[in-house]
Design a protein around this nucleic acid. Structure first.
Lengths: 204, 204
DNA sequence: GTCTATATCATGATAGAC
DNA sequence: GTCTATCATGATATAGAC
């Protein structure tokens, strides 16, 4: 019997649902397609997750945490600014090279009703960790070790350089006209490219 | 009678559809909601645009062109690299400050089936304009006027810094924890922030 | 051109046998 | 737990009166 089967089936569902939801979004995803991908039928799918919303929330919650927990834990560390930034670059690039559609999914669903999702899925305690980053930047600026810059723009620049190429891939490919293979090679190099670009921009 | 009414109604539909599709995407948009926003009924909506797909294509085509035509025309110009980049920053930031949801919409729908959309909506002649940018960068690098850098990464960096904050707004707000008002103020400053960041990074 | 009413179909969800 | 119906809803699309 089936305490083992339970787990296998539920995991099969979650894994299938993650793929479908990430690829097509909540609105585009079909319970039938998720059931097919998990090799079960709709009835059983609804047995494990009563509604599409409940299943979606399970997937989205994991995705959102994956997307922000890295950065929160790094920002909370006691480290020099440069090391913090390098760690963020390494951490995110590793994550995104493995799961390129994650940020687009999170951003999209978040943008439908950000407040609701944040309240629902995030321990609001995670608040205001950014003030540490801000303090780091001001310290480095005052010590003359980096150029004067607004820490919020600096932070946005950092995240933009890392995340956007993955999110905006289809648009970038239209403009630059490179194929998937070239694109992938470019992303492999990008970890170091972003690190050096940030350092170049900040040198006094 | 109604040659005037035609135009007004069609424009009302296009304007309503643009709002709804951009906000909710193809899958999330409802013909009923578009009809409501245009102050007509579903029957009339289908009289002007036989299917949802046809209406969507009309909207998406405009959005895609708006998103890439700027940049294509600028890249095609005979101008020093720095001026080119400043023009791209100004052009895009103006566009996005006026229509912040445009890039997310384009990227999303594009990512569903990039090839189909590109073939359908873009004169494929627009190809390979990027080689001009590449040549500009190499010239500046060889002349020692900017730091050594891969032109494709440089281009990605430029677009990322401009576009991502608008696309990733909900996620950035989760991490930085700023409200809409602060965010808007930040975007107002950002035009100059990006210009100076790019120049700082490239100085030899 | 514009409206109301309706056909058609797809989807999320449930009921009930095994 | 798993499956096979089946229901109920809501969405696109059409028909036909005005």
């Amino acid at each position: 019997m089936s305490s083992t089967n339970n787990i296998n089936t539920e995991e099969k569902i979650l894994s299938a649902a993650a793929e479908i939801f990430q690829e097509k979004g909540y609105d585009g995803a079909r319970m039938q397609e998720i059931a097919d991908k998990a090799n079960i039928n709709k009835g059983l799918l609804h047995y494990y997750f009563k509604t599409k919303d409940i299943l979606f929330d399970a997937i989205f919650s994991i995705a959102l945490k994956r997307m922000v927990s890295n950065i929160h834990s790094i920002l909370a560390m006691e480290l020099p600014l440069e090391e913090k930034m390098d760690m963020i670059i390494d951490g995110y690039m590793n994550l995104l090279l493995r799961n390129a559609t994650l940020p687009r999914f999170v951003i999209n669903e978040l943008s439908k009703d950000a407040d609701r999702f944040i309240a629902k899925h995030l321990n609001s305690s995670a608040n205001s960790i950014f003030i540490d980053f801000d303090a780091s930047v001001k310290k480095e600026v005052n010590a003359g070790r980096i150029k004067q810059i607004d820490s919020r723009h600096l932070f946005m620049n950092l995240i933009s350089l890392i995340v956007f190429p993955f999110v905006g891939k289809p648009m970038l490919q239209v403009i630059i006209s490179i194929d998937n293979k070239e694109f992938h090679a470019l992303m492999q190099e990008r970890r170091e490219a972003v690190k050096s670009f940030m350092k170049m921009a900040l040198r006094p």
